[in-house]
Design a protein around this nucleic acid. Structure first.
Lengths: 206, 206
DNA sequence: CATTGTGAACGGGTTCACAGCA
DNA sequence: TGCTGTGAACCCGTTCACAATG
């Protein structure tokens, strides 16, 4: 039963389901059950069935889920049957790693442009990309219609760069800068910060 | 009022509070309120007060919180007044970026060792570290008493490398490999996977 | 008077348990 | 028989609202 509003926390779990299903496909499996899938990612079977039920009925009683079909449906739900262009801003070590990362292929994304503001870097290459001047970010990103950005600039400039991305019509930002961004409510922002996660874990050590 | 069990989700927010407080310190601020702190990170003031109340009474009515004191208390709670050694396993682009990352300083962590299994890399340097042979991982990590690992190896070997880390007495693993790890319950595992987060965001785009 | 700490009320996500179906 | 989809029960985290206090 697909209803109107779906809790964000449910949406957040779908990519994990998809990730585990990709893994099963690579292992040559053709079907699975909520139980098996749940064991793999440490989530209860009931949780998975309930989550999926928000979007439709994808399984068969007694049989479970056909993996290719469920993968397909999740790809549609998450809008990753298309390929999204990504702009990477900041070409430090992390920006390099992202620009050269091979794992976006077949997952719905591809890096399309890379920017930096360092004159010594602009015009140089990172992976297959020529580093563009950040001064041209707004027109170039807007022109290209890029909707997703990954941010690997120093924390001191993260907010202002993010604001420029918003001006360029980007609507989702994945930020590696360890500062909270303040942007219009319709912009989706997520953070990757290893220190936050390490501190979370060390609470439990010792 | 500090009680025995504290919800994991509360613990997970503490590093974000600490992060925002560091930022305030850099701005020269000496005190703050639950309201101001909450505005900064997008959390309600009541939530912050309730979270902190699990661990003690750190504020003053009418005044708010003294930033240096609250920082100090959070550092104690999260056990980051000490410096934790980290072992990095895998020296691809991402391993490089982590090994050279300057942001661990003053946050409670420091990279102490770097491993890879590629003979062409072993003995070479990444940042200031000599790349060690993964065959020696268990004795060396155990000998050094390292409790925290960051994992940047290919997904196909992530599970077996993680098991070796557990054998080496590591008890917290921050994995960048896009596969769920199956380890003993007492091991803390967290994941960083940009694809998961991108897919979460693209659900809402369009 | 601003702001904390907190019991109580609330709300929503998770689990339960079972009907239904292959 | 095995497993899904789902309403209902449950549980737990969040918000509310206010007494307490510098």
């Amino acid at each position: 039963m697909s209803s109107n509003f779906i809790p964000d926390i449910v949406v957040a779990r779908l990519p994990r389901y998809l990730q585990a299903l990709y893994q099963m496909e690579e292992e040559g499996k053709h079907s699975t059950s909520s139980q098996e899938l749940g064991d793999r990612i440490g989530i209860s079977a009931a949780q998975i069935r309930k989550d999926l039920s928000h979007f439709g009925e994808f399984g068969k009683q007694g049989t479970g889920y056909a993996i290719p079909y469920l993968v397909d449906q999740l790809q549609i739900i998450l809008k990753v049957k298309q390929v999204w262009d990504i702009v990477v801003v900041g070409t430090g070590d992390l920006g390099h790693a992202i620009a050269r990362f091979q794992g976006f292929a077949n997952r719905g994304y591809r890096v399309a442009m890379v920017f930096d503001n360092d004159p010594r870097k602009i015009g140089g290459k990172v992976g297959q990309f020529i580093i563009q001047d950040m001064q041209n970010l707004i027109p170039m990103v807007q022109q290209a219609g890029i909707k997703i950005a990954m941010l690997t600039v120093p924390p001191a400039v993260a907010q202002s760069v993010a604001e420029n991305l918003v001006r360029a019509q980007v609507c989702a930002i994945l930020s590696y800068a360890p500062v909270p961004l303040h942007l219009p409510a319709h912009i989706k922002v997520e953070y990757i910060d290893p220190i936050i996660q390490l501190q979370h874990m060390t609470y439990y050590i010792g």
